[in-house]
């Protein structure tokens, strides 16, 4: 894939670099994976709309040269639903963090999945609210230390992939910023898949989550991703129970239910036929 080494730069707004993310933050890696996925699908920039929410990963639109809509905290999927429902021919990619996409925006997440609207949500999960100082989120593991759970998180975390799968998404996958070639493929396949696609990207926040939970600097946190991620197709995965702290990566669920726009078009055809009859 020699062409890919430069083709993806077309989607990157290099004039905005260096970006605002901390040293060792995985957001830049996830952004690279997204641009390579867009390049591999050869999507023209003007046919792509990237919708972002608020948070560290929500700033990603500043570094992209596609169309972009940067909205409010938790609402990115709702903004994106408007874009996609109005213009089904556009490729709409939604970038949210775990706080944005799964905590304040949890309701929109399950409804976007239920509606099975043809959006691709790329949720970077760093287990806490990075931008506001490392507070607890809906994906912070039980017991973990954050700036608002000083004695440990008393609440359980969401398994986002299981949540979204249960809500009806057509494509559900998890990757990490350590396993980049795989992450490129997961995002690419998610975009190519009709219906709601959800890719959780496990990523280090060395500044807050890593520091408070003594997980070491970025390099150590990347090593942890390597150790704890279990490929769904692997022999280890088939062995049964996951060890504490481990998680599956890869394509976790796929189905071919009709997407929102396809179902909607059927209803609209009926309505248009009625409109013609009565005139």
């Amino acid at each position: 894939m020699p062409g890919l080494k430069t083709a993806w730069k077309e989607y990157l707004e290099e004039s905005m670099l260096p970006h605002m993310w901390c040293p060792g933050c995985g957001n830049g890696i996830a952004l690279g994976a997204l641009t390579r996925a867009l390049a591999e699908l050869k999507l023209p920039r003007h046919k792509v709309v990237v919708v972002t929410g608020i948070g560290c990963w929500g700033k990603a639109d500043d570094y992209l040269s596609t169309n972009a809509l940067h909205g409010t905290h938790g609402r990115a999927l709702a903004f994106a639903t408007g874009v996609k429902a109005a213009r089904p021919e556009l490729t709409v990619v939604v970038l949210m963090g775990d706080g944005d996409g799964a905590t304040i925006g949890g309701n929109h997440l399950i409804h976007a999945a239920r509606r099975n609207i043809d959006l691709t949500a790329v949720v970077v999960n760093n287990y806490n609210y990075g931008m506001t100082g490392g507070q607890v989120s809906a994906t912070t593991p039980a017991g973990a230390i954050t700036s608002t759970t000083r004695y440990g998180n008393p609440e359980r975390d969401f398994d986002l992939c299981r949540l979204v799968e249960a809500a009806g998404a057509n494509y559900v996958a998890r990757g990490t910023v350590y396993h980049v070639p795989q992450l490129d493929r997961l995002i690419r396949d998610g975009i190519a898949k009709k219906g709601f696609s959800f890719i959780e990207v496990v990523s280090p926040c060395p500044t807050h989550f890593g520091r408070r939970n003594r997980l070491g600097p970025a390099v150590q946190m990347m090593k942890l991703l390597k150790e704890r991620a279990v490929h769904v197709g692997s022999a280890a995965a088939k062995g049964g129970e996951l060890p504490e702290g481990s998680f599956f990566i890869g394509k976790l669920a796929e189905r071919d239910d009709p997407d929102f726009n396809t179902s909607y078009e059927k209803m609209r055809k009926k309505a248009l036929a009625k409109g013609t009859e009565s005139s």
Binding site: L12, P18, P23, N27, G28, G32, A33, P181, D184, A218
Partner: peptide, 8 residues
């Protein structure tokens, strides 16, 4: 290149 978070 792919793992560099900074496009550096």
């Amino acid at each position: 290149v792919m793992r560099c978070p900074d496009f550096a």
